[in-house]
């Protein structure tokens, strides 16, 4: 392949990387800027981080985000594990239909999903008076996290040697026992990685949170966005960098879990 590749392709690949990472790097570096400007470096400083962390709104949003994302991750991971194991033996058409149904949030534009959820919760409130408060956001996040959590779990299932399961059945293990003592432990790396994906997707969500969250339910991305209506300072860089660090730490965690899983199953 190498021989036929024009030299410029390497240049394109390099430029793609620069294009993908330069804005992030600029954002992060100016979060340490001593001055107020986005284009003049005035010395290294943690001042904007101190300011961000002292900002009460930011802290409240961080707490909301942690509550919503943690709850949605736990729920979505359990549901996704159940769905993958449950659908494993379903017929082809059933499986396809259920997967498409659960995968709806991957296909429908996020803003449409968000206004649909807004309409749903508001009619629920009007008709029955039920309002789960922050629970509304948790349920909404869970729904779009499930298909993401399913991806690595499904991949892990493909790596499970079916003869192990047959062995368990041959030894008179019930279906439930096989699942609990054989299948789920084998799927654990996938489940862990699925949980990490679910957390990332929920943590980064903006559209759903912005449209569905009521007063006092602001999450971090929505809070950061609201800052755009004021004169901008690098405080917004500091807040954004904190978000990036959390996401990237989770990616590394998820990869470490997957890598370890591969080692132990080998």
């Amino acid at each position: 392949m190498n021989r036929h590749l024009p030299r410029t392709f390497a240049l394109f690949a390099g430029l793609s990387l620069v294009f993908l990472y330069a804005p992030i790097l600029v954002l992060c570096s100016f979060s340490f800027n001593g001055g107020r400007l986005f284009h003049r470096w005035e010395g290294f400083s943690f001042a904007w981080y101190a300011k961000a962390i002292a900002n009460e709104g930011f802290r409240d949003a961080a707490v909301n985000t942690l509550v919503v994302s943690t709850a949605a991750t736990l729920l979505a991971t359990v549901l996704a594990t159940g769905a993958v194991i449950g659908l494993q033996r379903a017929g082809g058409r059933q499986q396809q239909f259920a997967t498409a149904l659960i995968g709806l949030p991957l296909v429908v534009p996020e803003v449409v999903m968000a206004i649909a959820t807004l309409i749903f919760f508001s009619s629920l409130r009007n008709a029955t008076g039920v309002d789960l408060g922050l629970g509304n956001l948790v349920v909404a996040h869970t729904a779009f996290c499930v298909p993401f959590a399913m991806m690595p779990i499904r991949a892990a299932l493909r790596g499970v040697d079916p003869s192990v399961l047959t062995a368990a059945t041959d030894l008179y293990a019930s279906d439930t026992a096989t699942r609990r003592h054989v299948l789920i432990p084998l799927l654990m790396p996938g489940i862990g990685s699925g949980a990490a994906l679910a957390f990332m997707v929920s943590f980064d969500d903006f559209a759903m949170s912005q449209l569905v969250a009521g007063p006092g339910q602001t999450t971090l991305p929505v809070f950061i966005w609201a800052q755009l209506k004021r004169p901008l300072t690098p405080e917004i860089n500091a807040m954004s960098t904190i978000m990036l660090v959390v996401s990237i730490a989770l990616i590394c965690l998820s990869m470490a879990v997957t890598a370890r899983g591969k080692l132990t199953t080998r």
């Binding site: 449950g86 449409v112 499930v146």
Partner: peptide, 24 residues
């Protein structure tokens, strides 16, 4: 029999996916 394990995820997808979209 395993299908019941997938039921919660499917129910959630219907309640927070199909029904809200029908509302739209």
């Amino acid at each position: 029999s395993g299908l019941s394990l997938a039921a919660p995820a499917i129910v959630l997808a219907v309640v927070l996916g199909c029904i809200p979209l029908a509302f739209v």
